[in-house]
Nucleic acid binder design. Structure first.
Lengths: 152, 152
DNA sequence: TAGTATACGACCGTTTCTGTCGGAATTACA
DNA sequence: TGTAATTCCGACAGAAACGGTCGTATACTA
C-alpha cells in the first residue's frame, strides 16, 4: 500500500525516456519498452492512456510513435500518475461524495486529507524534466513556501 | 493506489478511540469494533499486530483489552501504518536490497525516493493525539522547518 | 471452574493489478 | 497498390493483495 502501481512507474519511465530524446520526432512503444525491459503491449496501453489524457501526442503508421505533448518541464509526476491510476485518496473510505458510510464520526479522515494534499503537492512539484536530469534541482527551492502552506 | 489499506484505517481509528478514553484501563477489541462498525475479528487481529509492535499493551481475561503503550502524543501515524502494512515504498520496484532488477538505469527511483521520505515525514509529524483532537493544532508549526528540509 | 478476553493460524471470496491475445484502423514507403 | 510498422481498443486470464471469517488455544479474573 501507499505504493505506485507498476503502470505508473512505467509511465514515468517512458516519459522520462521521451524527455531524454528530444531529437527524435517520435518513439514507438516498442522502442521504450525495449530500453527498459517493459512488456511492450502493456506499455502501449499505458502510452495510449497518457495520449488520451493529453500528456502525449501520437502518430500512427510507420515511423510513428509517441512524443511529449508539452514541455518536459511543464508535465508533473502528479499528472502522469493521475492519468494512469486515476485520482487517489490516502484514506480508503473516501469514495468522493458519500464519504465514510460505515462510521458517523470517522474523524481521522480530516487530518489525513491534509496528508493527501501534501503528497499531491510534492508530486506536482516534480516535473518530467526533473526525472530526466539526475540531480533534480529547480523544483526544490522554488516550491518550499507553497508546500509548507499546503501541509501545515 | 497510494491509498492506505482499510486495516491501517481501522488501526488509526482504534488508537484514536483509545486515546479518547484514557479513563478506561483497557478497551476490548469488541468495544472499539462496535463503536465504529468494524468487523470485530478483523480489528482484533489488527490490534494484536499493534501489540506485537509495541504500540499497545494487552491484557487477557475479564475486563482485559487494549490500551496505549505510550502517550498518544508520542505515537505517530507513521508507526501505526508501518506496524500494520509493513514498510512502504512509493516505487513499486524497490524491494529493499536488490533495487530495480529489470532495469539498469531506472533513474526515476531516486527522485521518487525523496517523495517517499516526504510522505513518511508528514506521517511521522502526525500523532494519535492529533487525530483525537478534531482540529489538529500542535504538530503543525512545530515541524514546519524540518519538513521543508526533508522534502526539498 | 466458568466466563471473558487475547493470540494465532488457516482459509476463502473479491477485487485489483499485471500481462497477453486478437484484431482493426492508420500511415509511410516502395 | 500492397506491405510493413505502428497506434488503437476490448476482452480475458493468471497472480497477487485485500478484507473478512472460523476454529481453537491460551490467559486471566472472579
Amino acid at each position: 500500500m501507499l505504493k505506485l502501481t507498476k503502470k505508473a512507474d512505467y509511465g514515468l519511465m517512458a516519459l522520462k525516456f521521451l524527455a531524454e530524446h528530444p531529437e527524435r520526432p517520435a518513439l514507438s512503444a516498442k522502442d521504450v519498452a525495449d530500453a527498459y525491459g517493459i512488456p511492450a503491449q502493456l506499455l502501449a496501453k499505458i502510452l495510449q492512456q497518457l495520449t488520451k489524457s493529453g500528456l502525449l501526442r501520437s502518430t500512427a503508421g510507420m515511423n510513428g510513435g509517441y512524443a511529449l505533448a508539452r514541455e518536459a518541464r511543464s508535465i508533473s509526476a502528479y499528472e502522469v500518475i493521475l492519468a494512469i491510476d486515476g485520482p487517489f485518496f490516502i484514506t480508503s473510505c473516501s469514495k468522493g461524495k458519500t464519504g465514510c458510510e460505515l462510521t458517523t464520526n470517522c474523524t481521522i479522515k480530516e487530518p489525513l486529507a491534509r496528508v493527501n494534499e501534501t503528497i499531491a503537492g510534492v508530486l506536482k512539484s516534480i516535473s518530467i524534466q526533473d526525472l530526466a536530469e539526475h540531480e533534480p534541482p529547480a523544483a526544490r527551492e522554488r516550491n518550499a513556501r507553497e508546500l509548507v502552506a499546503l501541509t501545515l
